[in-house]
């Protein structure tokens, strides 16, 4: 049996499909930002950026870049009609206070109970940086992780217990990988979807932790 892993763009498009009309959504820096390019055109979805924007629009044309209008990844963006600006106190009230329906973030590891590790690999010589990851992890109604299923050397990023420093404990509800879509439920990891050509047993073998197949 053969299969082709989802590309990052395909993963982003897959995540975007699940974002409902009317949602307030924060897209983390890096790969999750791609989700913004795939939001269904017939749905009104309001993007939040932690630096103080609601109603964030796509990247501007090169000649329309405004140095005062950037996203959390410090890339130039636009503001949609109805969009607003606010200060950091308010922005993190939105994030921490349960006002965001969904945040999509990257991860180094997710544990079978939904622990998230995405801010540090714990390498002694690394320059640490955390940003808003810990606030989003505890605050958004739904924390969705978007990541490759395996590390470059083939190890599962879904683990019994995170070995990297935690960002948040029992916070992740769903994982979108290049191989599958997996919910973290009270009964364990529930596989909702597997890419074409890959079966549950093979996914289970590669992941190395117990999973159940959603009915």
């Amino acid at each position: 049996m053969s299969y082709i892993k989802r590309t990052r763009e395909q993963m982003a498009a897959r995540v975007a499909q699940d974002i409902a009309e009317g949602s307030y959504v924060n897209l983390g820096i890096g790969v999750p930002t791609l989700v913004g390019d795939h939001l269904p055109k017939d749905r009104e979805i309001v993007l939040h950026s932690e630096n103080g924007i609601l109603g964030m629009g796509p990247a501007p044309a090169d000649d329309a870049v405004d140095p005062d209008l950037i996203n959390a990844g410090k890339q130039p963006v636009t503001l949609l009609p109805g969009g607003v600006f606010f200060h950091h106190g308010d922005s993190f009230a939105m994030m921490r206070g349960g006002h965001l329906d969904i945040c999509v973030i990257g991860a180094f590891q997710v544990s079978i109970t939904g622990d998230l590790a995405n801010w540090s690999t714990g390498a002694p010589d690394a320059i640490p940086a955390v940003g808003g990851a810990m606030d989003l992890a505890v605050g958004a109604k739904n924390v969705w992780v978007m990541m490759e299923h395996l590390t470059r050397d083939g190890k599962s990023k879904i683990v019994p217990q995170c070995t990297y420093p935690l960002t948040g404990e029992k916070v992740v509800k769903r994982i979108y990988t290049d191989l599958a879509v997996i919910d973290i439920t009270k009964d364990g990891l529930e596989v909702r979807e597997i890419i074409a050509g890959l079966d549950f047993e093979e996914l289970q073998r590669m992941t190395g932790v117990a999973m159940i197949l959603a009915s």
Binding site: G89, D125, D135, G139
Partner: peptide, 17 residues
Amino acid sequence: RAGEIELELIPQGNLAE
């Protein structure tokens, strides 16, 4: 890296709050 500055790393929302 040279140990010549002290860093208190603070989650961004905690910094703001």
